[in-house]
Design a protein around this nucleic acid. Structure first.
Lengths: 342, 342
DNA sequence: CTTAGCACTCTTTCTGATTGACTGCTAATA
DNA sequence: TATTAGCAGTCAATCAGAAAGAGTGCTAAG
C-alpha cells in the first residue's frame, strides 16, 4: 500500500480512538496532513474503503475503522512506546512493594494496569495444578479437622480446611504426611487423584473415608484457585459507546461470567501479547469490544494472565506499552531477588 | 388515618412496586377498590398528597409514593409472609450443603438471597477481631517463612503467610507458639497488638524483627477479612429505573466502593432488620435506592451482615420474608448440629 | 495525479400539531 | 355530609415536516 494511504489510515484510527466520532476528510487535512487537499484525502479514503479497511456509518458520513483496519493498525502501523515518565515512576512504586504471596502480586499488577490504562482489567494467577509440589503439610486443627498446606517449587502456597466425620489422631496425620510427601514431592499438583487414593489406602489400613475426603478437598481447592481478579469495572462507563444501555448491560454481564473470562485468559500463549478485535473474540458478547491478553512469565515460570477489555477503539498503543513495561519490571525484580540470594 | 385512605396508599405502593409507573385513580378502582368511584379515590389521593405520603411527577400525572409513604408502608401496612412453597424448598436445599468454612456459608447465603429476591445482595462475615482465640498455630514453610493459623472459639479459621529477612528455627517457632497461646487463649483476636509484642520480646531474647513481623502480618490479615461478597450485580439492570444511564453508572460505582458498602453493613444492629429508604441512606449516592440490612446471629453469635440493594420501590415484603426465613433455617441447622454433638 | 467546486445525501435539531392519560373542580345526588 | 358524574384543563409523548449542517462523490480544470 502507498505510504500516504497508510498515513491516512493511521490518522483515521488515531483520531477515532480519541474522539469516537466518524472522521471526515477535512479533519485529516487539518490535524494530520496539512499539505494535501481534502479531495485527495477523499480519493484515498474511497480506496481504503474499497479494500475494507474503513467504513461509513451512512452515505454521507465520515469514516470509521473496520475490524480489518484495526488489525492492520495494530500489526503494522503502531509504535509501542506510549508511556510517560510519570507512568513509569508510578508503576515502579506500585510494584516495588514486597508481597508475601503470588496472589497479592497478581492483584497489585491488575489494579496498576487498570489505573494507568483506564480500562477494565482482569487476571488469573498461574495454574496451580501444573506446578510441582515441594512439600505437603497437614496441620491438625481439632480432632475432626485439619488443614492441608501445599508449597510448590515456584513458591505458591495453597491451603484448605478439611473436616471429617470421625476422629483422627496425630499419629495418623504424621503417617499421612509422610506418605503424601514420599509420593508427591517434585510432582505436579494435579497428580493428587484417584490412583493416589488407592495407593495411600493400600499402604495404610484405616478409614478410606478420611483419605477420600482429603483428596476430594484438595481437588476442590485446585478448582477454586481459578479466581479472577477484576479492577476498574466502572471505568468503561465514561466512554461514549456506553451511552447505549444495551452495551453497558452487555459489558457488566460478560464480566460477571466467570467461565467466559477464564476462557479468554487461558487461551493465551506464554510471553505473548494477544489482541482480539471485535468479532475476533470467541465470545459473541464481546463482539463490540477488544481484548488484549498477556500471559506473562518471570524467569520462564508462568505467572498468570492479564486481560484488558475496552472498546474496539481502545488505545492499543498505550495498553501494549504498559504491558510490556510491567513485564520488564517484574522480570527485573525477580532477577534482583535472585541476586540477593532469595 | 381513615381505613380507606390506608388501603388506597397501600394499593398505590403495591401497584407502583409492580409497574414502576405513576398510579392513576382509575387503576386503583379497577384493580383494588371496585366499589368506590374514581372521583372518591381522587379526593383521597389529594389528601394523601397534602400530608406528604404521595407525589405527582407533573400536574396531570398519577401518583407515586414519597419516601414518607414508603416508610408508612413498611412500618404499618406490610405483612411479611410473602414467600412461596417453592422458594422455601429452594432455600432449604441450598443451605443444607455442609460447608467447611464459615466464609463459604456466607457466600452461599448471599447468592441464595440474590437468586430468590432478584436484587443485588452484599454481605460481610462476622468480625473476626472480636472473636476469641481458641488456638494459634505456627507452621514452618521454609527457613524464612511460616504460616500462622488462628482458630477461634466460634470455629472461624484465619491464616496468613509470614516471610522473614532472617532464618528461623523450629525451636524458635515452638517457643513462639507456646508463648502466643499462653497469652492469648480465650482472648479476642484484637488483643494481638503492640503490648503483646513487648511481652513476647521480654520473654524471648532473639530478634525483635521476627516478632514485629508476625504481629504486623496478623494484623494485616484481620484488616483484610473485611471481604465483601456480592451477588447479582447485574440483576438491577433489567429494572426500568436503570434506563437512565446515570442511575446505572451510579449503581455500579457505589457497589465498587468497598468502604461505603462496609459502612452500611456494619451499622446494623444484631438480629434486627434495618430498612433505609432513599434519602435515609447515609451515602448520597444511594439516595435513589433502598437498602435492607440484616445482621444475623446464630445461637447468639454474630454471623455477619447481609444487605440487599434495590430501587426505592423494591419488593419489601418479599425481601424481608426471605431474610426472616433464612435466619430461621440457619438457626435450626445450628441447633441440629449441636444435638448431633458437634 | 491533484484539486476546486458543486450537487446530493443523510443525520440532527427544531417546531407545531395531535392524541391521550390524568387531575381538580363543580354541581348534582344519596 | 360523603360520594359521584361530568367536564375543562394540563402535561407528556409521539409524529411529521422544515431547515441546517456535515460529509461525500463526481466532474472538470490545473
Amino acid at each position: 500500500m502507498e505510504e500516504r494511504k497508510k498515513k491516512i489510515l493511521r490518522a483515521i484510527v488515531d483520531e477515532y480512538i480519541e474522539t469516537a466520532e466518524p472522521v471526515s476528510s477535512n479533519t485529516i487535512v487539518q490535524k494530520y496532513e496539512p499539505n494535501i487537499s481534502s479531495a485527495t484525502v477523499r480519493n484515498d479514503m474511497a480506496e481504503l474503503e474499497k479494500i475494507g479497511y474503513i467504513e461509513k456509518t451512512h452515505t454521507s458520513s465520515g469514516r470509521v475503522p473496520s475490524a480489518k483496519g484495526y488489525r492492520l493498525y495494530v500489526d503494522e502501523l503502531l509504535k509501542y512506546d506510549d508511556i510517560s515518565l510519570e507512568e513509569i515512576k508510578y508503576i515502579g512504586e506500585k510494584l516495588e512493594t514486597k508481597v508475601n504471596q503470588l496472589e497479592e502480586l497478581t492483584k497489585i499488577t491488575t489494579s496498576t494496569i487498570s489505573e494507568i490504562t483506564h480500562y477494565t482489567t482482569v487476571s488469573v494467577g498461574p495454574e496451580s495444578s501444573k506446578q510441582n509440589i515441594e512439600e505437603i503439610k497437614f496441620v491438625m486443627l481439632g480432632s475432626r479437622m485439619l488443614m492441608a498446606i501445599i508449597v510448590t517449587e515456584l513458591g505458591l502456597i495453597k491451603e484448605t480446611i478439611i473436616k471429617f466425620d470421625e476422629d483422627i489422631t496425630q499419629e495418623q496425620v504424621d503417617t499421612l504426611t509422610r506418605l503424601f510427601n514420599n509420593k508427591l514431592k517434585g510432582k505436579p499438583i494435579e497428580m493428587i487423584d484417584k490412583p493416589l487414593e488407592e495407593y495411600i489406602f493400600n499402604e495404610l489400613h484405616y478409614s478410606i473415608n478420611i483419605i477420600k475426603t482429603i483428596i476430594e478437598e484438595i481437588r476442590k481447592m485446585i478448582k477454586q484457585d481459578e479466581r479472577i481478579y477484576l479492577e476498574g469495572r466502572n471505568k468503561n462507563f465514561d466512554l461514549p459507546e456506553f451511552k447505549s444501555l444495551d452495551t453497558a448491560r452487555n459489558f457488566v454481564n460478560v464480566l460477571d461470567e466467570n467461565d467466559t473470562m477464564l476462557d479468554i485468559l487461558k487461551s493465551g500463549v506464554a510471553d505473548d501479547i494477544q489482541i482480539y478485535i471485535g468479532d475476533e473474540n470467541k465470545s459473541e458478547e464481546l463482539k463490540d469490544f477488544s481484548v488484549i491478553t498477556f500471559k506473562h512469565s518471570v524467569a520462564n515460570k508462568d505467572m498468570g494472565t492479564i486481560g484488558i477489555i475496552g472498546p474496539k477503539r481502545m488505545n492499543y498503543s498505550k495498553v501494549i506499552s504498559v504491558m510490556k513495561y510491567i513485564n520488564k519490571i517484574l522480570n527485573d525484580n525477580e532477577d534482583n531477588n535472585r541476586k540477593e540470594g532469595n
